[in-house]
Amino acid sequence: MEVTITNIRKEFDRFPALNDVSLKIASGELIALLGPSGSGKTTLLRLIAGLDFPTAGQIFFGEEDASHHSVQERNVGFVFQHYALFRHMTVAENIGFGLKVRPKATRPAKAEIGRRVSELLDMVQLGGLEKRYPNQLSGGQRQRVALARAMAIEPRILLLDEPFGALDAKVRKELRRWLREFHDRTGHTTVFVTHDQEEALELADRVVVMSQGKIEQVGSADDVYDRPGSPFVFSFIGESSHLPVEVKQGTALFQGQPIGIPEAQDGAADLFFRPEDVALVDASDTLFGKVIACRRLAGTRIAEIDIANEGHAPYHVEIEVPLHAPVEIGSDIRFRPTRWTLFRH
């Protein structure tokens, strides 16, 4: 099911939680809504589900305008952050709930519901746990019961709110891979919300980066990491440093000194680069400074450098330095970004 969101605005007590958001989700796509808390990602998910209604704008399911349809009419599968399993019902009753509450005309027979429930349980690899209650399950198992329950109603799209938020790191990684396989097998259009960039980049076909009620960038993991479209995306995803620079006569100046970065258009700008995209060079037009600290980070070594010129307040950036040639603390170092982005003011 293709989902089209056009010019959505959502206000809570006149405070805009979403401002003019448009997004097209292709059928069968696995999409991540990524952003810090308060960026509006969960609000957008709830609007798609019909758990909240937009102040302005429209939501289409395929060709059909679903903007005014209730959550029941939209027939979406929603997996809640804390699963919201019915604690007084067994696993089987939880999964069968969506079928049991259907009007008589479309309700499957009891035996049929039982068959579907065990089918779904097998699908989420929890066969045999029918009679357990939610409080007798681990976090990962509850998550999968919630998913099976949402899938039982044969939803047109699947929506997941921070699906791995309440799980420990190891289970999280396992479930992440499992969800990807699950998606590839069932082919449902799936939207999930997360604040964990690693999760979004690893799992999703496309990542929607959000900040302050707006979409900053939509793209594949490569797009948002290698070609960030805005200063926010650059600093939110991955590690980065940024410098205020002034472009004059075809080159960028940091605190009045040329740093060997060519740029055509004059004016003030912000220079962004990643720690791994630098080279130590021996030239006069580079960034230079004193090594403040040097630390080992998994397979890399990161140096923190104060690059402020004389008479300026300290300005720290982090760069990757060769693993086998540690730099000495207090020593001078010269380097230049090899890949960067300039954002104009």
């Binding site: 019915f86 709930f97 969506g98």
Partner: peptide, 24 residues
């Protein structure tokens, strides 16, 4: 949360109250 889950699964307001809110 439980009520929203029930509604998203297609339950009516009354069914939600009867099967989810009241037992809780």
């Amino acid at each position: 949360g439980d009520e929203e889950a029930a509604l998203s699964l297609g339950a009516s307001g009354w069914q939600t109250f009867w099967h989810v809110t009241l037992p809780n």
